[in-house]
Design a binder for these strands. Structure first.
Length: 728
DNA sequence: CTAGGGTTAG
């Protein structure tokens, strides 16, 4: 019960509580005069009543009133004092007693509920049902089952209410065998005509993944109401059968059943999932007409629908329209939309606004906002949010934990990532994947592999993503044999079907180590048609190992699949230039212009300078952006002045700055890496000793952590392998 | 007095 006390003090509700009370209502209830609070015990009991549902409160008080023990104006005060109820013997009233049992059960105090239950002079079905549903809402499912088994011993037969609760438990636990047995009993007892029972049967089957059963039951039902339709539509939605769900939604309306908020919420989610903006707008219009558009659930579903379909303006407009009706879920949906639509800074702003407005943050909030930190990436924001996470006791949550790991990984801080991992109370596969990826992407493939072993030892079943991280680790550590073995075992031992990304990882593994022919063989023998992203690592390998002939061959394949593959033109042009085939090199450049291929960002002197400027003026999270900008500017000028030795053989005049701006672009990549875009500069990065030193220097003056991305070859600091030779 | 359907995350 102390938890209820705490809850009361903090005025916030744990989401696990089985009913929802709006904050205003709570405040309203809490403001009732509580005069008889003397002992801790009373306080706790009073809280129980405060937190009980309104209707029940009224019904208890009504009984109280009807016995003539209180004046109408005094009702609230009386009802707040349950010990008083007991002292006047009302707890022996069958109905009041049952209400009290139910109240304690719903408050999570099963001990008190059981005590009261045992004190009841006469036990009817309802009291038993209250106890069962109490067990269910407290997650004590075994207790609920064993109580159900000895139902007879209390002289009662299970009624439709009992079956509803039991079936609901089966759905939650996803135990279909027990569910089917109960179904049989329900049929035998002729309770199927109770729509509440048949509805929970529908839900049970769909939660157990048995959609055929659910659908055929639905078709056979003698009576269907709105809830039956909603249950089946939701089942289809949850099983990603969106088209059918929408079809039933329409059918329902044709059958003259008017959807309510629940149904509209699911329908909107369906439109989002099938990316049908027209239907989404149609539904939006329908809910406006019915005055439901600003409701908590429907409103949030609308925000989510628009933001998922890239209509952030509509989403934000709707969010503003919701005003104070926006719940934390609405905030989360909006923030998620901003992050997904590459507006990470706006997302951070929204988050600050949310905090400023005192909206409670939950684990979803943190998960989402950490994604924004990761996409910038901004180490300072990361740390700030992390502090809030710890303060709000979410650092043990696996979702938040994994998000933190991802964010720290993007900021290059593996140490922080692993520290976060050790804090997660119950890590799951995805948490493991994240921490393995952290090491595999940040230059410690050995640690990644040992973590992978640890994960298997602990009995976790690796997923496709796990193998992606592990394969990449093997590729970077040059362990071809091990990599090939793990790829085999992924298929044979773990039965995971390799996807495109796995194949390109394998090509990278072989090609990177110089086994170009083997890599080509591998591609030619794939069970699927090779895609551009499977060919591309081979091109990078050709560049690295100076095989112009194969590069030309690979380039053809890539261009046939993706005409706009800028990397093909750039790589070929550079390779030709080095082979002193200047005409060919120039042709590649012309081709690129002709096809209007968008050049990769971060290339020329001006571009880099502008980008750095833009980044630092945007990154409001960095306390010393101006100072750093100036320092960087000085370095750039210095380099420009000293850089005549390494001219581009193709364009000796534009040369030195281009050459060194490439280095700066590299640095810039690790200084800022704005969402999605200049990461390319950084991808396929091969770093020579010079550049490595430069990167260290840049990271020092900017006081930022070095981010080593995907293809960073930390152990190959030979000049010949470096990206700084690519003159874009 | 007791039962049935909804939105957001790694």
């Amino acid at each position: 019960m102390t938890s209820v006390s705490k809850m009361y003090v903090n005025k916030s509700f744990p989401s696990s509580f089985p009913w929802s009370v709006k904050d205003q209502t709570v405040l309203q209830i809490c403001s009732f005069p509580v005069t008889s609070v003397s002992s801790e015990q009373n306080l706790v009991k009073n809280e129980c009543l405060v937190f009980a549902q309104m209707p029940k409160r009224i019904s208890v008080s009504t009984h109280y009133h009807e016995t003539g023990m209180g004046e109408k104006g005094d009702l609230q005060r009386n009802v707040l004092d349950s010990s008083h109820l007991i002292s006047i013997g009302l707890d022996e009233d069958e109905f009041v007693g049952t209400s009290l049992i139910d109240m304690y059960a719903k408050c999570g105090d099963m001990d008190s509920a059981v005590v009261l239950f045992n004190q009841m002079p006469r036990l009817d079905v309802a009291s038993c049902n209250c106890l069962i549903s109490g067990y269910a809402s407290c997650g004590l499912f075994d207790e609920a089952f064993s109580f159900f088994m000895k139902f007879d011993s209390f002289g009662n037969k299970p009624n439709p209410y009992t079956y509803s609760t039991m079936l609901s438990i089966c759905g939650t636990l996803s135990v279909i065998e027990e569910g089917k047995q109960l179904h049989a009993q329900v049929v035998k007892m002729q309770h199927l005509s109770e729509t509440a029972v048949s509805n929970v049967l529908l839900t049970m089957y769909s939660k157990c993944g048995a959609m055929e059963e659910a659908e055929s039951l639905f078709n056979r039902l003698p009576q269907r109401n709105l809830i039956s339709w909603t249950a089946i539509i939701n089942g289809l939605y949850k099983h990603e059968d969106f088209e059918k769900a929408m079809m039933l939604f329409c059918l329902m309306r044709e059958n003259g059943i008017e959807p309510n908020e629940y149904t509209f919420t699911i329908a909107l989610a369906c439109c989002r999932s099938v990316k049908n903006l027209d239907n989404g707008r149609l539904l939006h219009a329908l809910v406006i007409k019915r005055g439901m558009a600003l409701g908590e659930f429907v409103g949030t579903a609308i925000i989510d629908m628009y933001s998922e379909l890239g209509q952030m303006d509509d989403a934000e407009k709707h969010f503003k329209g919701m005003g104070t009706l926006a719940s934390k879920v609405s905030w989360n949906a909006l923030t998620k939309g901003l992050v997904h639509n590459e507006k990470a800074h706006d997302a951070l702003d929204a988050f600050s606004e949310m905090v400023r407005k005192d909206t409670a943050c939950d684990e979803f909030t943190f998960s989402i906002i950490l994604k924004a930190c990761a996409s910038l990436p901004s180490f300072t924001s990361c740390q700030q949010i992390h502090a809030r996470v710890v303060k709000a006791n979410f650092d043990t949550n696996m979702h938040v934990g994994s998000s933190l790991i991802e964010a720290y990984t993007k900021c290059g801080s593996v140490e922080d990532a692993e520290r976060v991992f050790s804090q997660i109370s119950v890590p799951d596969v995805i948490s493991w994947n994240s921490v393995i990826k952290a090491y595999s992407q940040n230059s410690n493939p050995r640690r990644a592999i040992s973590l992978f072993r640890g994960m298997i030892d602990k009995g976790f079943r690796p997923t496709g993503s796990t193998f992606l991280a592990v394969l990449s680790a093997y590729s970077h550590s040059g362990k071809i044999q091990d990599g090939q073995e793990i790829f085999q075992s992924m298929v044979r031992e773990f039965g995971i079907l390799p996807e495109e990304a796995h194949y390109s990882c394998m090509v990278d593994l072989l090609g990177r180590s110089g086994q170009l022919e083997k890599a080509l063989d591998f591609i030619n023998n794939l069970p699927i048609k090779p895609t551009a992203s499977i060919w591309t690592p081979l091109l990078a390998a050709c560049r690295c190992h100076n095989n112009l002939q194969m590069a030309e061959f690979v380039a053809k394949h890539i261009l046939a699949l993706d005409q706009n593959a800028a990397t093909v033109y750039v790589t070929l042009s550079n390779m030709y230039a080095e082979a002193r085939q200047l005409v060919d090199a120039e042709n590649q450049r012309k081709l690129m212009k002709l096809k209007e291929v968008t050049k990769e960002p971060g290339c020329s002197w001006i571009e880099v300078k502008n980008k750095i400027h833009k980044f630092f003026s945007l990154d409001r999270t960095h306390p010393e952006s101006a100072k750093i900008y100036n320092k960087l500017n000085q370095v750039m000028i210095q380099i420009k002045d000293n850089a005549s030795a390494n001219a581009n053989p193709l364009y000796p005049e534009e040369d030195s700055c281009l050459y060194h701006s490439e280095k700066l672009a590299v640095c810039f990549g690790l200084i800022s890496l704005p969402a999605g875009k200049p990461v390319r500069v950084f991808k396929n990065l091969r770093v020579c000793t010079d550049c490595h030193m430069f990167m260290k220097f840049a990271s020092m003056i900017t006081e930022r952590v070095i981010v080593l991305s995907d293809n960073y070859r930390f152990h190959h600091f030979n000049k010949g392998c470096c990206s700084c030779r690519d003159y874009w």
